[in-house]
Design a protein around this nucleic acid. Structure first.
Length: 288
DNA sequence: AGGATACCCTGACCGC
DNA sequence: TGCGGTCAGGGTATCC
C-alpha cells in the first residue's frame, strides 16, 4: 500500500538512523526481487557511507559517499525494518542483539553502529538498485516520471494542460506516473472525493474550477497523510525497530456501503466500481 | 500512439 | 480445520 505519503514517512523514519552511517556488511539472500539486483550489488554497497536520503515519486533514495545512490521501491508489500540493537547496558557493558531473520527477509544491511536494516517483501513487487547520483534523473526508473504533486509544479493550469485531449477517466490519469507521481489507488480515490469530482469523469471535460479543486485536493490529501505518518512515527518505529504503516482514516477508500462523511450528502452510501481492474470508491452524490 | 489489459507474487480473507 | 477461490495493488510488457 505504500504510496507517496508512506514512502515519505519511511524516509523520515529511517533518516536519523542511516545518514552518516557506513554500511559494514550486506547479505543478499536472493538474486532478484521484481527485477534482478544489479551487478556486484553487495560489493558496491559494502564499506560505503550514507550521506543523505531522498525520495522521488514512490522511490526511496540513499546517497552514498562514492557517488552512487541506492534506489529502493517498496512495491506493494515491501518493508524496511531497523532491527539491530546495540550499545551499553546499565552496567556499561557492550551488548548487541539482532532479531532472527524471517521468511521474505531478502536484503540485510548491517551498519557500522550495530544497527541492522532489513528489507522484507513477501510479494517481491519491490526492487533495489544502484545508479550514479549525478545521473539519477536519467536512470531508467526515473526517466519517464511526471511531476511531484507537492510543491509548485502541480497547479490547476499544469493539470489542465496534462488532461486536455486525454480520453481516459480522471482516476486513470491520476494513477499514471508519467503525468503526476506518487498517487496510488488509495489517494486517487481520496483526492477525487475531496475535490468533489467523479472518478469516471473524462479528462478532457475538465475546466479551470474543477482543476483548481483537484490540484488543491491532491496536495491536501497527501500532506495530511504525511502529517499523520509523521505524528505516528514514534509508534510507527516500534520498540523492536520494525516500521509499520501508519493507520490513516480514509473518507471513501475501502468504505463501500458506508455513508459519505460529507454532511451535505446526508448518508449517501459510498459506491465501489472497477476501473482498469482496480477498485474505485466514490460518493455518487457529491462527486460529479 | 495511447489506452486497456495481463501479469508478476504471497497473504488475508471468505464461504463451504 | 482445511481448502479452493478471490482480492489486494505498483509497475511494466504486451496487445489492440
Amino acid at each position: 500500500m505504500p504510496e507517496l505519503p508512506e514512502v515519505e514517512t519511511v524516509k523520515r523514519g529511517l533518516e536519523p538512523a542511516l545518514v552518516g552511517r557506513r554500511i559494514a556488511h550486506v547479505d543478499l539472500r536472493r538474486k532478484d526481487l521484481r527485477i534482478p539486483f544489479p551487478a556486484r550489488f553487495a560489493e558496491r554497497l559494502a564499506g560505503k557511507r550514507i550521506t543523505g536520503m531522498g525520495r522521488r515519486a514512490k522511490y526511496l533514495l540513499a546517497d552514498l559517499d562514492d557517488g552512487e545512490t541506492l534506489i529502493i521501491h517498496l512495491g506493494m508489500s515491501g518493508r524496511l525494518t531497523l532491527s539491530g540493537k546495540s550499545g551499553r547496558n546499565g552496567e556499561g557493558r557492550y551488548y548487541h542483539e539482532v532479531r532472527p531473520l524471517t521468511r521474505h527477509d531478502h536484503v540485510v544491511l548491517d551498519l557500522d553502529d550495530g544497527e541492522r536494516l532489513v528489507f522484507n517483501d513477501p510479494r517481491r513487487f519491490g526492487l533495489m538498485s544502484l545508479a550514479r547520483t549525478a545521473e539519477l534523473s536519467a536512470a531508467s526508473f526515473f526517466r519517464h516520471l511526471g511531476i511531484e504533486p507537492l510543491g509548485n509544479e502541480l497547479s490547476a493550469d499544469r493539470l489542465l494542460d496534462g488532461l486536455k485531449g486525454k480520453k481516459t477517466s480522471l482516476k486513470a490519469a491520476l494513477l499514471d506516473q508519467t503525468f503526476v507521481v506518487g498517487i496510488g489507488n488509495i489517494y486517487a480515490c481520496e483526492a477525487l472525493h475531496r475535490a468533489r469530482i467523479s472518478p469516471k469523469r473524462l479528462c478532457h471535460t475538465m475546466k479551470l474550477e474543477r482543476a483548481e479543486r483537484l490540484a488543491q485536493a491532491i496536495k491536501e490529501v497527501l500532506m495530511e497523510a504525511i502529517e499523520a505518518g509523521g505524528s505516528s512515527l514514534k509508534d510507527y518505529v516500534h520498540a523492536d525497530g520494525s516500521l509499520g504503516y501508519f493507520q490513516h482514516r480514509f473518507a471513501v477508500y475501502d468504505r463501500e456501503s458506508q455513508p459519505c462523511p460529507r454532511k451535505t450528502c446526508k448518508g449517501t452510501k459510498i459506491r465501489r466500481i472497477v476501473q482498469s481492474n482496480r477498485s474505485t470508491f466514490y460518493c455518487p452524490n457529491c462527486q460529479r
